[in-house]
Design a binder for these strands. Structure first.
Lengths: 339, 339
DNA sequence: ATTAGCAGTCATCCGAACCGAGTGCTAAGG
DNA sequence: CCTTAGCACTCGGTTCGGATGACTGCTAAT
């Protein structure tokens, strides 16, 4: 059983190590924090913490650094997520408040988070699946090419090009558009996908092929949600902290570019509190063993949730990251809820 | 005056240095290339090249490395841009041939170039300015919010949200849309911007404000071309070659994220041959003194040109990069010309 | 013009000695 | 029983000097 003070020592070690990048010894702790005890006592506590595998010594005679387990305890029990400064809060308001477009809002968001945390920031597009179809538009690009545009009630626009086997004239296209609008409008994307698929079956002979193709395209569009896309910012922060990744920073960068790894990771990060942290080796299956992820969901009530977060070295400032991520996520949820 | 053989020596030095990352000495050259002369002769040639500031010695007694000026001569006179292997050509055909959407085509392109050159690849969106307006669509999102969608004849879609002071009903919106379509359809984006601005002036009283706002939004959309956007891939390659950037790789990464620096750089890179190279200090004004850029324009005849290229350390394989960039640019021009 | 030979330069690579931060342990004190 | 002072010990990091060897530039001969 680790004593109260031992945990305080752990907290001190994490904080100092994060700040200095160097193993922290008993004397340093005595100097920098005012425990009312001597270095020898701290050493005893440290021996205890080492017993519990919360800290480790890189070499026989050097200070200690937190283990992944130590960070975990810190994050779960010891971190004080102090609220942002008012200046920071204002920055959120003013910087994000100006955006009028979902794309712009998210792109500003991710840059803001990168700046606040000085880490790589990632935002996942809100899912499309529970949004409702407002309008379907078909635009003829060439005789056999039709651009399908799907507009949701939240103002998101998805477009895709459909390639037809036979040419179709404007007239027909208009009728088809009205028909498809009738079928899909007001439904959620998920429902619309089904409805449109159904429509395919009972198509009237004449436009059977055209309708089938278009409906299939739209259905697919509605289904393949936009939530499998990420916006990223702050790559420079990743390189800045490169030395903290034991050489395999390339894996992290590839994971970011591939996106799918991060998305899967996000998919696994649920938590009651909204904010979740995955630390170091917990991410090893994804080849991100030296990496930590701090993320929070944000959502409009009644819509699918989405996530935003930061990706950085295990040795990161969790308090700061968690505070910033939480604040921005809350702001986003609030703003999206209004519109 | 540098002799014929001296230039051959320069070529050898560039090739070897790029391959080995180490200063190359006279003996190495004699061993690896079959000049019919001895090391001493090579040394004389090297002294000449050093005189001309085409190569330099990091230390008194080490091999030589090319200077920026040396790379310049290499690129302009000595590099053999050997065509891609048939395997590579096929890769281009099959990998890019599958895409049916401009977005997808460009995103595949940039990934392909990154893979072929093993460098960071960048593609600039083709300019919108000379494309023609095919269709304007207005969709009401909320009483005072209208989504303006601008569709070009090449299938590009631009959307923007307009915020109105007073609510507008569907009926009116329909009429406005028809009106705007009449005005703008068939014009190039640049012309449309003017026409729509003009329309603003002589608006009928009733919908004056609405029309003004919408026309202004569309005009702005048409003007702010999409060509100020970049698609990027292969950031891992940048980190892989980090040691070649004298420590300031952060500047490069920031330039990539900012985009504007790269765009300005692209803007300055014209060349008759289509392919252009900027080397090292030539980019110093942009804080990219250790960086080289190989780029080529691609274009549909009659449209504004756009660029794609790679960004890497001064010490890069110019032959390979130029070959790959040129091949992909040509393919793109051809493909876009067809559609 | 080329080449062999040679002296000179200088980064790099050890190994030894040294330093010092930090530990664990023990014994004494509250 | 917890805390503390003291002490021997460990071991990474630094510094210094010498040996190594990859080059070069120069000169003289071919």
């Amino acid at each position: 059983m680790v004593s109260e003070r031992s945990l305080a020592v752990l907290r001190a070690i994490v904080q100092d190590y994060v700040a200095s990048r160097e193993p922290v010894g008993s004397k340093t702790i005595v100097d920098r924090h005012h425990f009312g005890v001597s270095a020898a006592t701290i050493r005893n506590d440290m021996a205890l913490l080492e017993e519990e595998e919360l800290i480790a010594a890189p070499h026989t005679s050097s200070g200690r650094i937190p283990t992944d387990k130590g960070y975990r305890v810190f994050v779960d029990q010891l971190a004080d997520i102090r609220p942002l400064t008012t200046a920071q809060r204002q920055a959120i308001e003013t910087f994000l408040g100006e955006s009028n477009d979902l794309d712009e809002l998210l792109s500003r968001t991710v840059r803001l988070v990168a700046q606040l945390t000085r880490q790589l920031a990632v935002v996942q597009y809100p899912s499309f699946a529970r949004a409702r179809v407002r309008h379907v538009e078909l635009v003829s690009i060439a005789p056999t090419r039709v651009l399908c545009i799907l507009i949701s009630d939240s103002g998101q626009v998805e477009q895709r090009l459909a390639e037809l086997d036979h040419p179709v004239d404007e007239e027909t296209l208009h009728r088809l558009r009205d028909r498809l609008n009738e079928v899909a409008a007001g439904l959620t994307m998920a429902e619309a996908a089904d409805a449109l698929s159904a429509e395919t079956a009972q198509a009237d002979r004449a436009h059977a092929e055209v309708l089938r193709t278009l409906a299939a395209t739209l259905a697919d569009q509605a289904k393949v949600t936009r939530s499998d896309r990420l916006v990223v910012a702050g790559a420079a922060n990743l390189v800045r902290t490169e030395q903290d990744f034991a050489g395999n920073i390339l894996g992290v960068i590839e994971a970011i570019e591939e996106q799918v790894v991060i998305l899967r990771l996000f998919g696994e990060m649920h938590s009651d509190e909204g904010i979740a942290v995955r630390i170091g080796r917990e991410n090893a299956p994804y080849g991100l063993g030296e990496t930590s992820v701090v993320s929070s969901s944000f959502a409009v009530p009644g819509r699918d949730v989405s996530r935003l977060g930061v990706v950085g070295p295990t040795r990161m400032d969790y308090s700061q990251s968690m505070a910033a991520v939480r604040a921005v996520a809350r702001y986003l949820s609030r703003t999206l809820g209004e519109s």
